[in-house]
Nucleic acid binder design. Structure first.
Length: 323
DNA sequence: TTGATTTGACCACT
DNA sequence: AGTGGTCAAATCAA
């Protein structure tokens, strides 16, 4: 396991060197391509080894998390909903990639912070008995966070967050220059997943999206969900593979915010069927994804398999400072 | 053909 | 009554 982590560190160091030399490398596509290939190979190898280890045996998880200094209590979380998983990842995952992302984060506004705001709606839903019943205001937890818009590609769209969403409404909001978009989980019908989110650009900073999540994804938990291994175990595994947020106790690591805009996902099954991991355009049609995504570090996918829409994987990781 | 998006209307809530 | 959230028909796109 240790060598896997060393490999990841190595890849991160390589990526960082690319980043620092990006102005020059931009004029040397061949060299840049070679460097990228090397990183991809290292990370792909690491990924495969990780998958092998974790598929065949659970014990390496503990050693992995020990090496990554994951708090023991995290091992005992019985389960974690996907949104929480995302938040955990976006708030904590970056220990091994901070170096890689530090420079990139310099392009993200410093005043952008995640908002772990949690509210409970006070009223019970009133179930109407007329011909067109509408559900509203159930006791659904709301979680709001600020997400930077992609700096490349279609900046009109918020970054992907690792889930597939279907837009069901858009509305002009009083006092807001930008409309609020309403999304629900693509798998709502199939798996009864009630997760929803609202996306709205900030008035004073259109490059920042306020994303409000409501409800938890249950599509992962469905026994009929398109999974080949138990999703709860997978989520637990993912949890154990993250790094403690307590390692950066004061303020959120700048790179964590950056990562919140990156869909870090695991595509089980190894080489086949790599789905887009990052998209500048958010919430694309779910037809490009087979079921749910599970966030885990997969830098190679993040960097180089951002195939759809306008997002550019490598640019997502190494945005230039100019816009 | 199927699924996603758009958009006007409906309805809950304050 | 005003505002925000949701529905659903029409439209678009793969």
């Amino acid at each position: 396991m240790e060598d896997v982590i060393n490999s990841i560190h190595h890849a991160c160091a390589l990526a960082q060197s690319i980043e620092s030399d990006l102005p020059n490398l931009a004029n040397q596509p061949a060299r840049l391509s070679l460097s990228i290939d090397e990183i991809v190979k290292i990370l792909s190898d690491a990924k495969e080894r990780i998958m092998l280890l974790f598929q065949n045996d659970q014990t390496p998880l503990s050693s992995f998390s020990q090496m990554m200094m994951i708090p023991h209590e995290m091992h005992h979380q019985p389960q974690m909903d996907a949104i929480s998983m995302q938040e955990l990842l976006s708030s904590s995952y970056t220990q091994t990639t901070d170096q890689l992302l530090q420079a990139a984060m310099s392009t993200i506004p410093l005043d952008v912070r995640t908002l772990p705001e949690t509210k409970m709606m006070g009223k019970e839903a009133i179930v109407a008995s007329h011909s067109r019943p509408r559900k509203r205001k159930v006791d659904v937890e709301k979680r709001t966070r600020m997400v930077p818009a992609p700096q490349f590609g279609n900046t009109e769209m918020p970054p992907k967050d690792g889930f597939t969403w279907r837009k069901y409404g858009q509305k002009e909001i009083l006092g807001s220059k930008y409309p609020r978009c309403y999304y629900r989980c693509t798998h709502q019908k199939l798996y009864g997943c009630l997760a929803k989110k609202q996306v709205q650009r900030l008035n004073d900073n259109p490059s920042i999206y306020e994303v409000t999540y409501r409800g938890n994804h249950t599509c992962h938990m469905s026994s009929t969900a398109p999974l080949s291994i138990p999703p709860q175990q997978l989520l637990l595994d993912m949890t154990q593979r993250t790094i403690s947020p307590q390692l950066s106790p004061t303020t959120p690591s700048s790179s964590t915010l950056w990562l919140s805009s990156i869909n870090v996902s695991l595509h089980r099954g190894g080489s086949g069927g790599i789905a887009p991991a990052v998209a500048g355009a958010s919430d694309g049609p779910s037809t490009s994804r087979d079921g749910a995504d599970y966030p885990v570090v997969d830098m190679a996918d993040v960097m180089f398999n951002n195939g759809n829409c306008s997002g550019n994987g490598i640019e997502s990781l190494f945005p230039s400072t100019e816009r």
